[in-house]
Write a protein that binds this DNA or RNA. Structure first.
Lengths: 113, 113
DNA sequence: TGCTATCTATTGGCAGCCAATATATTGGCT
DNA sequence: AGCCAATATATTGGCTGCCAATAGATAGCA
């Protein structure tokens, strides 16, 4: 998988893994990795700025937690984030439909199978 | 549809529309537009450099044609281009599978429907 | 005489992800 | 005790690759 593959779809990925409950940054990376069967390996330089941006625009909310001496910053979806996630899913379908129909055109009308 | 949406998939689109026969640049734009039901509107600044690049690396071959006074540059797939197209289709499936499985996770094992 | 469609082409810009880098804790293995 | 991998957060600079803007030419129609 091309490293740059998530370009344009990162927000949707982040929102999606946070849908089922709060996660901290490192856990988000592993969650995306697991759910994509290892295909998508996000880097810290990719997600931390993105998470900050998503919080800044009100799609996420964060809070610091402590596990012993270790601090974690947990992110969770806001209501706006949930609505945006729904929009991202719709956009994803439109996107794959568009590209897919060019890449694999349907048989023309009247084409006998 | 985001304008920037084809990023990373442009080559596949160009190769795919050329699979069924040679086309010139302008016709490629309309072909992509039609096959995507209007969703994808490529610009000249997008495709001409891309077509040149694909020819330079041997995936396309071009020839000038004349229709009256008007000149057209027709592109067609080389054999390498056909092989690359097949690879692009495989990569597309892997890509959509990866993103899709994160965006819309399958029900976990044991989840009663 | 314009306006739209057809046709090719180049350049600069910039959005957005990544590599590299920095820092610190924790737990297991030897 | 010492080392290393895993866990955890964060920033910066850079580059890829598409797009907007621009340019120019022919053709047909109102």
């Amino acid at each position: 998988m091309r490293q740059d593959a998530v370009r344009g779809h990162l927000d949707g990925l982040l929102l999606a893994v946070l849908e089922q409950g709060p996660l901290h940054g490192y856990a988000i990376i592993t969650a995306v990795q697991e759910r994509s069967a290892g295909a998508l390996e996000l880097r810290t330089g990719t997600i931390y700025p993105a998470l900050n941006r998503l919080e800044r625009v009100g799609l996420l909310r964060s809070s610091w937690q402590s596990v012993g001496e270790r601090r974690r910053r947990c992110y969770e979806l806001t209501e706006a984030g949930q609505r945006t996630l729904a929009g991202e899913r719709t956009a994803w379908i439109e996107f794959t439909t568009a590209i897919g129909s060019v890449l694999n055109p349907a048989a023309p009308p009247g084409f006998a199978t």
